[in-house]
């Protein structure tokens, strides 16, 4: 086993771990009870799955063809930046649309904050109107 085979093995191993992560994420989306926990599963572990797979592909091509693909590195950075924010926006849109949390939920701090804002935060709103 020479050096390039070892590097290729590392890349293939990362791709395997990444696909296992993707399956775990898919199982989470099916099994979890409400939108927020599903987006938790769908954002975190599938981001990690994509990152591991892309890193594996990068290492594989680097080891087998000594070709450092800048596009793969850029894709890793891009997915790492965008996927959590996409999850954030989807969950926030769901909360704004009054999607109920599951029955297992015991705390809703955002709801408390919004209610507190509605009760005493009228001053800011009137200032906005004056402007």
């Amino acid at each position: 086993m020479n050096v390039s085979e070892i590097v290729e093995f590392i890349g293939v191993f990362l791709i395997l771990i990444g696909s296992i992560m993707a399956v775990i994420s898919a199982i989470g989306i099916v099994r979890l009870p409400d939108v927020y926990t599903r987006s938790h599963s769908g954002t975190k572990s599938s981001t990690l799955a994509v990152l591991l797979t892309l890193t594996g592909a990068f290492i594989f091509f680097w080891g087998s063809q000594s070709f450092a693909s800048v596009r793969l590195l850029l894709g890793i950075v891009f997915v790492f930046l965008t996927a959590p924010v996409a999850g954030h926006l989807i969950s926030r849109a769901a909360y704004r649309a009054n999607v109920k949390t599951s029955d297992l939920t015991v705390e809703d701090e955002l709801g408390d904050a919004i209610r507190a804002y509605e009760e005493e935060g009228t001053g800011e709103h009137e200032e906005d109107k004056k402007e």
Binding site: F78, L81, T82, V85, H88, L89, I114, Y117, E124, H125, D128
Partner: peptide
């Protein structure tokens, strides 16, 4: 209606 607050999206857009 709560004042919309898109800090996450706007900050990320500046980079992306």
């Amino acid at each position: 209606p709560i004042k919309s607050n898109d800090v996450m999206l706007q900050t990320l857009t500046r980079i992306l």
